[in-house]
């Protein structure tokens, strides 16, 4: 039972990384898109890409938190206690990011749009960095269980955490660039398609490089994790590498749709590799999944809620994605309205 719930936890983390991660990455590209004029086109692709589904994507985070605090409450309490600083920063970032994105869509004045855009984009980088650093702190065994706090700084400012943070930001940017290449291909024209395709290619190489460097970082800093990643989790690590190379190949051949699927697969594989590498521990070498698990009745209740989510939310989510992909959902953004007013003014 605990294994099953741990697996659903991994499903939640994977979904958050693959969908929410791309949203963060879109914010990264927004940040580096350059001045208001030069960056206007890529930014409109970003807005369009995040569009209707961004809210739903971030529910996965809530899902992960709820499963963790209900089913593995000791791990949740310990993680929150030790990693107070990066998690508080992440929470701040989530508020700033979510609100500034929602506001930006509805604001017309360029100067305010720009300010909100800066907040949105900066927090889009900070939040995944923090989550990556948190994952690194957990994976390298820096979170002690049982209500005693670990080091409030070294637990997330350490080689593995830095690796985790940088890898998270780069992976988000990679995913977003791959997704947006496909999006741009469909509705923004060949120049934007090329724009994001180039960036996707670069990021694929960057992520690959970080991963290779990471192997040495982990060998020096997180022995348990390293042993396991090169042991039982090795097939998943290799799958991820193949997925990444495959994405690269498909991107050079402009097969964007397939690239999208492979990129998702590569990220999912690396997350499951992390999960397998940690097994059987939730907090490596000190608290196992079985020890942290809540009483069976609680696990059953959470599983029922998960089952209902599969029955209710997945079809709904599929509906949302299908409607979105068929362009049946259309944002009336502030800029659109303004354009119409300008049109009317011009004709008058």
């Amino acid at each position: 039972m605990a294994e099953f719930v741990a697996a659903t936890l991994m499903v939640g983390i994977t979904a958050y990384a693959v969908f929410g991660g791309a949203d963060f990455g879109a914010g990264f590209w927004d940040l580096v898109a350059g001045g208001a004029e030069r960056g206007a086109r890529p930014r409109s692709v970003v807005d369009h890409a995040i569009g209707p589904v961004w809210e739903a994507n971030h529910v996965w985070l809530i899902f992960v938190l709820v499963v963790l605090w209900t089913s593995f409450s000791e791990a949740f309490g310990s993680i929150m206690l030790t990693l107070f600083v990066p998690l508080a920063l992440a929470a701040f970032g989530i508020v700033l990011r979510g609100t500034s994105f929602a506001f930006r869509k509805e604001v017309v004045r360029l100067s305010i749009r720009r300010d909100l855009g800066v907040v949105f984009a900066t927090s889009s980088v900070i939040v995944p960095y923090c989550f990556g650093a948190v994952a690194g702190g957990i994976a390298s065994g820096r979170v002690p269980p049982g209500g005693t706090a670990g080091d409030p700084w070294a637990s997330w400012i350490n080689p593995t955490s830095i690796l985790g943070g940088v890898l998270a930001v780069a992976t988000c940017a990679f995913l977003a660039a791959v997704y947006m290449t496909y999006d741009a291909h469909r509705f923004a024209g060949p120049d934007m398609e090329e724009y994001f395709r180039r960036r996707a290619l670069v990021m694929a190489i960057v992520v690959g490089t970080i991963a290779v460097v990471g192997i040495f970082v982990l060998r020096a800093d997180a022995e348990y994790l390293y042993d396991r990643l090169t042991g039982p989790a090795l097939p998943l690590v290799l799958a991820s590498a193949i997925g990444g190379l495959g994405t690269l190949t498909l991107l050079t051949r402009r097969l964007h749709r397939g690239a999208r699927v492979l990129a998702m697969g590569a990220v999912a594989a690396v997350i499951w590799a992390w999960g397998v590498a940690q097994w059987p521990y939730l907090l490596p070498t000190r608290l196992t999944v079985a020890e942290a698990a809540a009483p069976t009745a609680t696990l059953v209740a959470v599983s029922i809620a998960f089952g209902l989510a599969v029955l209710i939310c997945l079809p709904s989510l599929a509906l949302l994605y299908v409607l979105d992909q068929r362009s049946l959902l259309d944002a009336d953004t502030a800029a659109d309205g303004q354009a119409r007013v300008a049109d009317a003014d011009a004709t008058a």
Binding site: T70, S73, F76, P295, A301
Partner: peptide, 11 residues
């Protein structure tokens, strides 16, 4: 609080 009561309060 969450450490101790999460398995009940969290449901």
């Amino acid at each position: 609080f969450m450490d101790r009561f999460g398995p009940a309060f969290g449901i």
